[in-house]
């Protein structure tokens, strides 16, 4: 039987569905009997969702200021006109 401490350490793997079936069943069984762990896993699920939401909020906030976008596109246009070549220094092949 997992202890509450052990379960708390494996809550991420459980929520990310990166846990073997047998282990997953152990976690589910523990949670059925333990309100503390049930609440903790609920908190971690909420935390994961809030972390994702935070990134989307950052993305929305970024849209308010287009100075950097303008600067990148202007720099790119200059480079295109002056060289017309790809950047040899960048390692850009996708894996």
């Amino acid at each position: 039987m997992l202890s509450c401490r052990e379960l708390s350490e494996q809550a991420d793997a459980f929520l990310d569905k990166e846990m073997p079936f047998g282990k997953r069943m152990q976690v589910r069984l523990h949670m059925m009997m333990c309100s503390g762990c049930n609440r903790f896993v609920g908190q971690m699920r909420t935390t994961r969702n809030l972390i994702t939401t935070e990134a989307k909020g950052k993305a929305a906030h970024t849209s308010d200021d287009t100075t950097d976008i303008d600067s990148i596109l202007a720099e790119f246009d200059e480079l295109k006109q002056s060289s017309g070549q790809n950047d040899p220094a960048a390692q850009t092949k996708d894996q």
Binding site: I72, E75, F76, N86, D87, A89, A90, K93, D94, Q95
Partner: peptide, 16 residues
């Protein structure tokens, strides 16, 4: 990085 992305996006092969 954004400059490099714009210069090299034609090389992106979609493997990631």
């Amino acid at each position: 990085t954004w400059i490099a992305v714009l210069r090299n996006v034609g090389k992106f092969e979609g493997r990631s």
